Simulated scan of single mutants.
Amino acid sequence: MTPYDAPSPQAATARGPALIDGFGRTVTYLRVSVTDRCDLRCVYCMAEHMTFLPKAEVLTLEELDRISSAFVSLGVRKLRLTGGEPLVRKGVMGLFESLSRHLRSGALDELTLTTNGTRLAEFAGPLADLGVRRINVSLDTLRPDLFRRLTRGGELSKVLAGIDAAQAAGLAVKINAVALKDDNGAEIPELIAWGHGRGLDVTLIETMPLGEVETDRTDQFLSLKQVRQDLESFWTLQDLPLNTGGPARYVRVAETGGRLGFITPLSHNFCEACNRVRLTCTGTLHTCLGREDASDLRAVLRAGADDAGLVEAIRRAVDAKPQGHDFRIERSAEPAVARHMSTTGG
Rank of each mutant, 00 (worst) to 15 (best):
A172R: 15
A172K: 14
V173G: 08
K174M: 10
K174S: 10
A177T: 15
A177E: 13
A177V: 15
A177Q: 12
V178L: 07
L180N: 04
K181E: 08
K181W: 01
D182G: 12
D182C: 01
D183K: 03
D183I: 01
E187H: 08
E187F: 01
E187P: 06
I188A: 05
E190F: 00
L191S: 06
L191M: 08
I192P: 09
I192E: 08
G195R: 02
H196T: 11
G197Q: 05
G197Y: 03
R198G: 11
L200A: 09
D201T: 12
D201I: 01
I205S: 08
E206K: 03
M208Y: 01
P209F: 03
L210F: 14
L210Y: 10
L210Q: 13
G211Y: 10
V213S: 06
E214Q: 14
D216S: 15
T218W: 11
D219L: 08
Q220T: 10
Q220K: 06
F221D: 09
L222I: 11
S223Q: 08
L224C: 09
L224I: 12
K225Y: 06
V227S: 09
R228Q: 15
E232T: 13
E232P: 06
E232F: 02
S233M: 09
S233I: 05
T236E: 14
Q238T: 14
D239Q: 12
L240R: 14
L242C: 01
P247N: 13
P247L: 11
A248I: 09
A248F: 07
Y250P: 06
V251E: 01
V251Q: 03
V251R: 00
R252A: 10
V253R: 02
V253K: 00
V253A: 11
T256W: 02
G257T: 04
L260W: 02
L260Y: 03
F262G: 11
I263E: 05
T264I: 00
T264P: 01
L266T: 13
N269R: 14
F270Y: 13
F270S: 08
C271P: 08
A273E: 15
N275K: 10
N275M: 04
R276S: 03
R276Q: 07
V277M: 03
V277G: 01
V277S: 04
L279Y: 02
L279M: 09
T280N: 06
T282L: 01
T282N: 10
L285S: 08
H286E: 10
T287S: 07
G290S: 12
G290N: 04
R291T: 14
E292R: 10
A294Y: 00
S295Q: 07
D296T: 12
D296F: 04
D296W: 04
V300K: 06
L301R: 09
R302C: 10
R302N: 14
R302H: 12
R302F: 11
A303K: 02
A303M: 00
A303W: 00
A305Y: 07
D306F: 09
D306N: 15
D307H: 05
D307M: 07
A308I: 08
A308G: 12
G309H: 05
G309P: 05
G309Y: 02
